[in-house]
Design a protein around this nucleic acid. Sequence first.
DNA 1: CGATTCCATGGAAACGATTCCACGAGGATC
DNA 2: GATCCTCGTGGAATCGTTTCCATGGAATCG
Lengths: 348, 348
Amino acid sequence: MEAVTIKDVAALAGVSVGTASRVLSGNPATSADTRERVAAAAAELDYQPNAQAQALRSTRSTSLGLLVPDVRNPFFADLAHAAEQAALSAGYVTLLGNANEQGDQQDRYLDTLISRRVDGVIVAPVGDDGGRLRALIERKIPTVLVDRTVPGLDLPSVTTDSESGIRQAVQHLAELGHTRIGYISGPQATSTGRDRYAAFTRAVAEAGLSQDPELVYFGDYQAASGSAGVHALMQLASPPTALLAADSLMAVGAISILHKLGMRIGTDIALVAFDDIEWFALLNPALSVIAHSVEDMGRIAIDLLLQVINGQTPQSVVLPSELIVRASSATPITRTEPTTQPRQRSQQ
Amino acid sequence: MEAVTIKDVAALAGVSVGTASRVLSGNPATSADTRERVAAAAAELDYQPNAQAQALRSTRSTSLGLLVPDVRNPFFADLAHAAEQAALSAGYVTLLGNANEQGDQQDRYLDTLISRRVDGVIVAPVGDDGGRLRALIERKIPTVLVDRTVPGLDLPSVTTDSESGIRQAVQHLAELGHTRIGYISGPQATSTGRDRYAAFTRAVAEAGLSQDPELVYFGDYQAASGSAGVHALMQLASPPTALLAADSLMAVGAISILHKLGMRIGTDIALVAFDDIEWFALLNPALSVIAHSVEDMGRIAIDLLLQVINGQTPQSVVLPSELIVRASSATPITRTEPTTQPRQRSQQ
DNA sequence: CGATTCCATGGAAACGATTCCACGAGGATC
DNA sequence: GATCCTCGTGGAATCGTTTCCATGGAATCG
């Protein structure tokens, strides 16, 4: 509306707009006297530069895009928080977009980010085909993938090495006496879904446990599929005695239905979840998790992105994962009282 | 970089930039023939308009700012999601900012939003003094408050009527036989903190329960203060038999320390939390909550904001709250075995 | 058939900042 | 004391779009 522009500041300070601009952008070619007058005028008028005009002229918007599959997923909420804070301290604002686990919504946001000429983009990609991500690459817009990768797209990324954590979890369960571990997998259309599934099958083979394919349920990283997975696995002729869920939301779904089934987590069945969500430690029993630092992931993603923006070509980073044992998988298996199960089940 | 501009589109279509602009912005004063040629050229070049230039010229940025105290708080994550989706379907992108519960960080973001010339702002304010919110008002930038209000700022808002839910909760607990209800309050520097505290004291008085001021602990809406509150309340000579936490994070803190103290929620002590977080239903025992629709809150906030943008002056909206009873407060009080408490406590 | 209206179009100004170029004054150098 | 630099400054071009104004051809009317 009646916004105050640099012209007003210049007029009040009695200098030209060029000079005012120089002072305000810290250009040293200014005298102490004018510097002071311009600064005073800007403060007096509560001048806020028009970021759009700046961006248009200087082709730098000092803003980044961050696209996540779902903010309501605590893992991505934490990631968004971490990335946003890191970006802020580097002088960038973050435009947060929500793909809602839908490829077309992700594409729509990517186009918006292109239009807004963000200086760089961090994406936890939803689909497996790249979609409009290719438009970013064509335009040479600095882009970093986070958490997930996309086959065929050569972009720097920050991901987690699922292998180590999953191997630890399987070994841990094996040591407790479990031989049939149910695996609630992520979708095979995501890199993390594939990686973790592969890691699980390898770990199970190495530990000499049952490789029965029926013990694997393929979910979609949403809570409902965690419930469905438990439901399916528990109806097997020989159901698993331990469960491993490939992400936090599916673990939530699993917990929910286990309660309904009247199965006590930690005693009737062991449960381990991928993703270390703060809340998991508060459950009763506390949940064993495969932890990876989402804090680091966000920070490093921003770091890589800033490198790309500066014209460098950084190496991708793979973060470690590690098992944290809590009560949900602490009890050695006891085959003494399978009688409780039918009773409890009837509660449902 | 080598971005394609409307000039390129116009050249390829063999028209002037003015005409190209008219076609692309849906101006009817164009012939079917040129419309087609320009559209084809734009598609051919994968043209994405420069949003900054558009905003600069048209003084509309089709973007909104959303400022929340903390994205990691599931309540605000849900709010952000709801608002973002509603904004998106109205054709606006949302710039999400995180105040981190700090007034200065909120102010910094507000200045950024002013600079970026967003068309409107939705704020869940952090402090009690308004801070740079006043700058928004001076500039007549459409602004809507959500969840919390600020005394002395006359802005449309969407808030929750805490009164009804809290009254229901207190009556419910009274009916179970509780006479001493501990209240873990929000900070009195927030409107919700004050409102809920006032509602609690009124409800307790009406129900004829103990109004012992020692039963109220003033927290800060963070998990740690929930723990501290429980700790303090349980050390009273005559500790409460039921607890009411004024938000979800403090409830989380309370649950955490109750576990550590070896107190069984729902039997040793009743617990009710404000905010209906999905996860609370999954806890064991499931948590009784005072629910209010964060979905509606986000949607309505956008709705009000769009009205303000269109020059109207909408009425503030107050949403209802309502008690949902679950296992954490389902058991009538039993004064039979206070002996378990010392035993359990020594576990700590 | 000439005058008026209409409509699609081209050209140019404008949005608010940055940045390049030129200029003039003052100081340093010979 | 004349020349050359240096340095601070003003003016103008520029970024990519929208929008206003003028123009010219077609269509309509009397």
